[in-house]
């Protein structure tokens, strides 16, 4: 099959076609275990493409979390460490400090980064570690079967909030990205998504910037990727992306929050306050 594809590619090139897009070699040939349509795959692809385009494959050390992306190390053809749940920023801190010429990134989900790893996340950011953190937020614990995450929306159903998340019982969705932007140690803080071609292009530019920033040694670069969990949300991939736009985005607005160490113009100061009213799902 692969030979057929290769032959077809050669044929097209001979016919005068130019290659617009093909899978990067920084991804291994391993088939990703993610559910069909999951944003993890797209996000992996973008990181790998950025590493490829920057020509830094031999300088990258990645850190995978515990959660759906625990096996990320099988998919990137770069050196990788697999951390205990929530501890990736601690690993990345030491990797970077002991190997300052490497490009170090963590790849974490919302349970890993914003629940069990809150302390490691905040302190790595506050120390201004020169690393890139990729935070995939799908508002749910995917790997363990769809339980409530710190980012689960108010009113949103999950395996442990079967009647919807209640503020009086479960507190508020945690906007980690806004919170981190208030720390002087963060240099670049942004929230992106990968549900359509335009969003993917912007997300890739953000990831590129977050990696390029490591050369400047001015602090931590943090990219939240808003993603779907179609299995956990119990929807088709296409419906899940639509649901994400309708429900997640009002609570987790897309765009840069902090660039080059400064809060972006037009960012409502209230958005940085954690008790800012949140949309309640019906």
């Amino acid at each position: 099959m692969n030979q057929d594809i290769e032959a077809r590619k050669q044929e097209l090139l001979k016919e005068g076609y130019e290659e617009v897009y093909t899978r990067t070699k920084v991804l291994t040939d391993a088939v990703m275990h993610y559910c069909p349509g999951c944003g993890h795959g797209t996000t992996h692809r973008l990181i790998a493409e950025v590493i490829d385009e920057m020509g830094i494959q031999d300088q990258v050390v990645g850190v995978s979390p515990v959660g759906c992306s625990v096996l990320a190390y099988n998919y990137f053809d770069v050196d990788f460490q697999e951390a205990a749940h929530g501890r990736a920023p601690a690993l990345a801190t030491a990797i970077k400090r002991l190997n300052p010429d490497t490009f170090v990134f963590t790849y974490q989900g919302d349970g890993d980064l914003a629940a069990i790893g809150t302390a490691e996340t905040i302190h790595a950011a506050n120390r201004g570690e020169n690393i890139t953190m990729i935070f995939v937020n799908n508002g749910i614990y995917g790997m363990t079967g769809g339980q409530m995450a710190p980012t689960t929306l108010v009113g949103m159903r999950s395996a442990t909030t079967p009647y919807g998340r209640r503020v009086d019982l479960n507190g508020y969705p945690l906007r980690m990205t806004e919170l981190l932007s208030t720390l002087p140690g963060t240099y670049y803080v942004t929230r992106q998504s990968v549900q359509n071609p335009a969003a993917v292009r912007k997300a890739k530019a953000a990831i590129r910037k977050a990696f390029e920033n490591q050369k400047l040694k001015k602090g931590l670069s943090f990219v939240e990727i808003l993603s779907n969990c179609n299995s956990g949300w119990k929807m088709t991939p296409v419906a899940a992306n639509k649901w994400m736009e309708d429900n997640m985005m009002p609570n987790y607005p897309i765009g840069d929050i902090k660039v080059d160490g400064k809060i972006c113009e037009g960012i409502d100061a209230n958005r940085l306050v954690l008790d800012h009213p949140l949309t309640v799902m019906q």
């Binding site: 050390v61 850190v63 460490q81 951390a83 205990a84 501890r87 601690a90 690993l91 990345a92 801190t93 030491a94 990797i95 400090r97 002991l98 190997n99 302390a119 490691e120 302190h123």
Partner: peptide, 25 residues
């Protein structure tokens, strides 16, 4: 390199990250 971590949980995991690059940590 010497660093004061935010907890023992963080410090042992910094040992993991650093030592996994083949250095004495």
């Amino acid at each position: 390199t010497v660093l004061q971590a935010e907890s023992e949980v963080a410090s042992i995991n910094m040992v993991y990250g650093g030592a996994a690059t083949g250095k004495k940590v």
